[in-house]
Nucleic acid binder design. Structure first.
Lengths: 194, 194
DNA sequence: CACCAACTGTAGCACTTGCTACACTCCCGC
DNA sequence: GCGGGAGTGTAGCAAGTGCTACAGTTGGTG
């Protein structure tokens, strides 16, 4: 077992880049190792197992997503936040991360490990950070939580079908989603206990 | 090449059952063939290629989903339709189909064939059939199309995170989604050209 | 009967997978 | 110098992948 974690961390970052580029689902050790300038033998020596490597990669991708959204400037209000979050979602630093999250979640759909566990952790941190963005944008916390549940799900669905659709369609869809979620605010005020 | 399409169709149905049960992502010919009482040799003889088999399976799953929703009784209104569609979505006949759709879409995210193409076709038929359900429920067509874009995406997202969350959370989320989408109606009336 | 095409079982190919046994080099403490 | 553990290259294993070559075995047609 290795002593120095430096190499391991550097490889984790590089391996994450590779997965964000090439996809998670067909991932295999030898091509990944080649792109890092090493051998599968080395990866297994330093990470122990392919599953451990994958878990590290997914955590790294999750870290990057969370860091990116955390550094986002606050939006004007809930409606604007939906638009801002969507344009962040499709931006080059974030899009591969969410795509990889989808791949991991799909792999974990039937309970396969390590995907199911890591995806659960990632999702918790991710939604918490989206909620924080909404509260920073002036949305009060209970509404923010409910809005994030819907917006996050809808964005994942948009992305799943995004390769299929013209961008105009998703632009309209995001506008509708922003309107719809903003309406939750009024509804909450009108009948606070539902 | 085969002559009698009967065996092929029967195998397509049985193979679809297998994939709905075992998942699409790790699918391999030998275990599938064994569960059908044949050999990989036979599957390849009758389907030509694994990709062709997969395409047939995905079309069959899509057919089943569409048939199920088509046979659904009309809902009272848009809000009720969201609830009805969600309980259909989670029902035993439909849930494995949508799960498999997610797996196929994840596999197609990077443009891999045959997934990307088949998923596109499936998605077109699927959304069309959801729109039809909404119009049968008294929603006028333009609104129905926009609502389906959001509801379908959100449901996919809910399902991706469903293994992680307590059911109470998604129940609240679906109620919110129904409210939010129903609000689109009022917004559309208030300012018809957006 | 012979013939031909559809069909199927056996065996195997070439390749990839995660992982490991073994030998070797290095560097640090004695 | 020397022992020992961390680290690394080479080679390989057992299993599994999609797919195929080959040798049949049917069943219907001339």
């Amino acid at each position: 077992m290795p002593e120095d974690p430096g190499r391991r961390e550097a490889w984790t970052r590089a391996a994450t880049d590779y997965v964000l580029r090439e996809g998670l689902i067909g991932l295999s050790l030898r091509p990944l190792a080649a792109s890092l300038g090493t051998s599968d033998r080395m990866l297994l020596y330093h990470f122990g197992t392919k599953d451990d490597l994958v878990a590290a990669i997914l955590r790294e991708a999750n870290d990057r997503s969370v860091a990116y959204v955390t550094d986002l400037p606050a939006s004007a209000d809930l409606r604007a936040a939906v638009h801002d979050l969507w344009s962040a979602w499709g931006s080059p630093p974030l899009e591969p991360c969410t795509r990889t999250y989808i791949e991991a979640a799909a792999l974990g759909l039937l309970g396969r490990e390590p995907y199911a566990t890591v995806v659960r952790e990632a999702n918790d941190r991710w939604t918490a950070c989206l909620v924080t963005h909404l509260t920073r944008s002036g949305v009060d916390r209970p509404l923010a939580q409910r809005a994030v549940t819907i917006v996050d799900a809808a964005f994942l669905g948009f992305q799943l079908d995004a390769p299929l659709d013209p961008p105009a369609l998703s632009r309209q869809a995001v506008a509708d989603l922003a309107d719809a979620v903003a309406a939750l605010d009024g509804a909450a005020r009108a009948r606070p206990r539902r």
